[in-house]
């Protein structure tokens, strides 16, 4: 197994972990945490895989590819914006209903 594939698999594991938590946890804050972990996993896949194959096998085996790094930077900013928005909405919901979960039924 090469290093990129290793990190990609770690990323996938994070995604899976987060997805599981997103589904089983009712508390909205936990869901936000789960989404953040999913996004970290995706970023890990992105950067892990984006490097050229390590056939040279040196101490610095791969030259970094700037493009996915720039994308992940953007992605981190997007993620934090999403987190902020979600938290703001959750705090509002808590203020209005006193709940921090969505409840089961779709209607009010």
């Amino acid at each position: 197994m090469s290093q990129p594939v290793f990190w990609a698999l770690v990323g996938m594991a994070l995604v899976t972990l987060g997805l599981y938590a997103l589904i089983v946890h009712a508390h909205l804050l936990r869901k936000v945490l789960a989404l953040n972990i999913i996004s970290s996993g995706v970023f890990l896949v992105f950067i892990g895989l984006a490097r050229r194959a390590p056939e040279a096998g040196a101490a610095l085996p791969m030259e970094p590819d700037p493009v996915p790094q720039a994308m992940v930077l953007t992605g981190i900013v997007v993620a934090v914006a999403a987190t902020g928005l979600a938290l703001a909405l959750i705090v509002r919901l808590r203020a209005v209903t006193g709940r921090t979960t969505l409840g089961d039924d779709t209607d009010d």
Partner: peptide, 24 residues
Amino acid sequence: AIRYLLISMLGSLSYLLGVALIYH
């Protein structure tokens, strides 16, 4: 809104995972 936001983020991240693979 919260349900939609969470779903929307999940969907986008799933898409982004595909983008990562395609870039690779």
